[in-house]
Amino acid sequence: MTLRTFLWLVPCLIVWAVLPFVVPRYMADLLVFTGIYTVAGLGIGLLLGHCGIVNLAQATFYGLGAYASAYCTVMMGLPSIAGFLVGAAISMALAYIIGRPILRLTGYFLALGTLALSAIASALFFEWDWLTGGTLGIGGIPKLNLFGFLLDRPSRYYFFVWLVAFACMAVARNLVDSRSGLMLRAMRDSSTAAAALSIDLQALRTKVFVVCALFGSLAGSLFAHHASFVSTQSFTVDRSISFLLIPVIGGATSIPGIVVGALFVTFLPELLSKLGDIHQILFGLALVAVVVLMPEGLVGAFAKLRTRLAKRGSGHG
């Protein structure tokens, strides 16, 4: 770690640690959601930024994680960790089974394939009300209890959620920087060339899809313990689209970009809602503006701006 990064990192960490205590509770609540969405968005970012795959099925894995936590704790009375593990296991198994055939597709067809998966899952969450509670959902999910410390308010849960998010970021960073990461980039830029170098594209894509599902499921379990309630309305295709927006807005190849995207998706609708019923139209316009004006996302646009300023600075000097 260079001194420069260190000088950046320390104040950032201080702000992060102090933030939930200084902002009002509803903002702390939104910061918890930002953490949860960061975890879910990281998986989508890996697929989009490093494999060029548009995944519209993240709400499925998010839902599986949430329902696993809800069912294990409320219906079966098991400890919370069981929900996290069961959710993760089911999500990863499903991602593997479904990923193998559908990841043979490419481009728009693959995006449509994942959209179909999301639509089917959302219908099943609805229909299997013996398992999911259907429209009425499952309520009364207990708050997490870490060694006797009850995470019953946003300012406490914030730290747990963000520690999980940081751990997921570390895993993502590791994956990207590893040999697999290099193979991924080779595959994204030219799949024919990558195949010629004897890279097993199918296995590699499936691996990332499984990691993405794991992140989605973790985010879902975190959400269930935060909201204390899960219902079909939280896991529709709309939610999959908003997860996809996270890397698109923040910047798909950058890990900090995912955090920026998650902040955008959680905070902007909230701020705009103060402007009355047209808030959804305004949010749509903001999205279009970001996508059209900043094709590399907010982080990409910021990096470009910095380079331009640096160039201008050196030009004057």
């Binding site: 009002p24 509770r25 509803y26 903002m27 609540d29 939104l30 959601f33 946003p154 959400f223 909201a227 309630f229 219902s231 309305q233 939280s234 609708p269 909230e270």
Partner: peptide, 14 residues
């Protein structure tokens, strides 16, 4: 429901 939860937190605590 997620938005409703945030709004409730804002109304009650904010």
């Amino acid at each position: 429901p997620d938005t409703a939860l945030s709004k409730a937190n804002d109304l009650i605590f904010g």
